[in-house]
Amino acid sequence: MTSLNDLPIRDDLRGREPYGAPQLDVPYALNTNENPYPPSEALVKAIGEAVRDVAGSLNRYPDRDAVALRSDLAAFLNRDTPGAGLSWRQVWAANGSNEIIQQILQAFGGAGRTALGFEPSYSMHPIITSVSGTAWINAHRDEDFGLEAERAVAAVEEHRPDVVFLTSPNNPTGTALPFSTIEAVLSVTPGMVVVDEAYAEFRRAGVPSALTLLPRNPRLIVTRTMSKAFAMAGTRLGYLAADPAVIDALLLVRLPYHLSAVTQAVARTAMAHGAELLGSVDALRVARDDLVAWLRAEGHQVADSDANFVLFGRFADRRRVWQSMLDRGVLIREVGPPEWLRVSVGTPEEMAAFRTALKESL
């Protein structure tokens, strides 16, 4: 049989492994940071009706620019961050935030260009960067997984990247960036600054969004997703807010009709039921903070989290702990810095199962 090595793929792709968290049939899956609460029967019915409404015209292409959906997303961001004042022309949507990142790098990265990030951080940033032909620079985070402004500025001034990725709250650590760090990076970066806010809805009170910086920073891009707080991971809808000129740049690289009519209909219906979908966020914040306190009381090191997951350690053999928990039906994530593990915040039943499995595994 023909193997991958027999094909004339690009040299820089040889030896790579496809990205992806394990998808295993287990009682308690706490490894992909999903919202554990499914849509209500009323929302399921509304989504079914929305899909039915567009089904009769699936012989036609969808709205290529998704104007209605972008208007809904802009309205949500204006509610989430009062004073943002966004119009639909400042919002763009794609198939998950990963396609958003890909389009940004297609437009502003490429051969001879560089993107810089501060790891440990979202592992798809360097993967999509390299696949787009852009060189990746890892400038590293502080020892406590934070990122002080001075360190960030020094890295940007040294490397002069075309794209800078700042992740807040950060994945896999959960830490939010000081606003001063984002502002400092914006002041010295020659290219684009992407603030990945995939988990922004879970941030603690008083932690601001970079959306407030958009009016005076035309090279700033703030990315969001409906996969986490909105409990719509299966919809595959990511979006960004930026200056209209940035949207114009992305139009040059997007595939035509990239968002299906069904995706747009489902996403708009979810946005219309946003209060319901986001109704679990407060409970998940409380569960997260309770989990952090419990893990610390048990003697573990825990990173401060503004997301719906917690990074904890340290383990001399984290693979053994991960496997032992899996043997007990609890799937968590072996990701990030060595000696650390990450667990998504789940329902009370799931958190109880996690606590029991962890104590037994140790």
Rank of each mutant, 00 (worst) to 15 (best):
R224H: 11
N171D: 02
L177G: 03
T167Y: 00
H159V: 11
Y199L: 13
P178C: 03
Y199V: 09
M226H: 10
E201W: 08
L166M: 11
A210N: 05
M232Q: 13
M226S: 09
S209A: 04
M226D: 08
A205F: 00
L220M: 04
Y199I: 08
N217H: 14
N217Y: 05
N217F: 00
T181P: 12
A200D: 06
L213I: 05
A205D: 14
Y199P: 05
P218W: 03
V194K: 10
E158P: 06
T181Y: 04
L211A: 01
F230A: 13
F230H: 09
T173A: 10
A184C: 10
V185I: 12
T173M: 09
E183F: 09
E201I: 04
F202L: 01
S209I: 00
L177T: 10
L213Y: 08
V164D: 04
E183N: 12
R203W: 01
A210P: 05
R204E: 11
V194G: 09
L214A: 01
P178W: 08
P172L: 10
A205H: 03
L220Q: 12
I221Q: 11
E158I: 08
L166Q: 07
D196S: 14
A205V: 04
A210L: 05
F165P: 03
P172K: 05
G206D: 01
A198F: 03
M232H: 10
T189A: 14
R160H: 15
L220A: 06
F230W: 13
N217P: 07
T167R: 00
S180F: 00
F230C: 09
